[in-house]
Structures are given as C-alpha cells and as structure tokens.
Simulated scan of single mutants.
Amino acid sequence: MKLILAILSNEDSSTASRALTEKKFQVTKLNTTGGFLRAGNTTLMIGCEDEDVQEAIELIKESSRKRSELIPSSAGYDMGRYMSFPIEVQVGGATIFVLDVEQFLKI
C-alpha cells in the first residue's frame, strides 16, 4: 500500500480531487501554505494499492497546470528611494510524494 501526498495550487485542487474520487480513490484535502510565495495551496492525501499509484499520478497531472504570475519584488535602493518591480514566476503544477505504508487501520 502507498500514501500519495500531492501539493497543488488551490485553483487546481477541486478538479484533481473530483477526478480522483470519480475513479474511486479516497482523498483527504488539507489546506496548506507554501513557503516561497506564502500562497495558499492544497495537499491531497491519497491512500491506494501499489498498482494504482500511476493512475492517481496521471489524474493529478491532468488536473494541475503550470502558469506564470507576477509578484512584487524590491530591487534595492536607488536615488533616495526603493525600486520595486514585478517578477514573473512559475506557479501551479503539482509536487507529489509517494510513500510506503507499513500499516493502515480504519477504526
């Protein structure tokens, strides 16, 4: 048995969760916060059999898309004032961890 931890943007989490539950995967959603952009995201916890891992990953991949966003950034001090300009960063997609489960109990 495996535990899949998939970290997605909030925008993609409902689509991914719906796709997984339609294929009978049991999904638990956790609201989490990313460290770099300090933006809200969602972590999905999916328990499944070893042979179902690749299907779950494909469903997550199909539901998660990368996109660009502009975020404000300070460039430094110039001529008595701070300069600020937006920086384009890649957001979205998914970060997926697949872990071995030693024991699973549903009590």
Rank of each mutant, 00 (worst) to 15 (best):
M83N: 10
L99G: 12
M83S: 11
K66H: 15
K106W: 13
N31V: 07
I60M: 01
T28A: 04
D78C: 14
A75K: 13
Q90H: 09
Y82D: 14
A16H: 01
P86E: 10
S74E: 15
G93S: 08
V91M: 05
S64T: 10
K61P: 02
Y77S: 12
G35I: 09
G93Y: 08
L30Y: 05
A56N: 01
Y77I: 10
I60F: 02
Y77V: 11
V91H: 04
V91E: 04
I87G: 05
A56E: 03
V27Y: 02
I46V: 02
G92I: 04
L30H: 07
Q54C: 06
F85R: 09
L99N: 13
A39Y: 05
Q26P: 13
I87D: 06
F25S: 00
S9L: 05
K2R: 05
G76D: 05
K2Y: 00
L20F: 01
R38G: 06
L5Y: 04
D52N: 07
K61I: 01
K61Q: 00
A6I: 03
E58K: 15
G80P: 00
K66L: 11
T42H: 07
K23P: 03
T33Y: 09
N31I: 10
S68G: 13
L70V: 13
G35C: 07
C48Q: 03
N41F: 04
V98L: 08
S74F: 11
V91A: 05
R38D: 01
S63W: 03
I96L: 08
G93F: 06
A6L: 01
T43E: 09
S73I: 12
R81N: 14
A16D: 00
G35A: 09
N10V: 12
T42K: 11
S74I: 14
K24M: 04
G40M: 07
P86K: 08
S13F: 01
Y77L: 14
F36R: 05
D12Y: 00
A75S: 12
S9C: 07
L59I: 05
Y82E: 13
A56L: 02
R81D: 14
E88N: 08
A56T: 04
T42C: 11
F104V: 07
I60D: 02
P72E: 04
S74A: 13
T95F: 11
S13P: 00
N31H: 11
E49N: 14
F25D: 03
T43I: 05
Y82R: 15
I60L: 03
I96M: 04
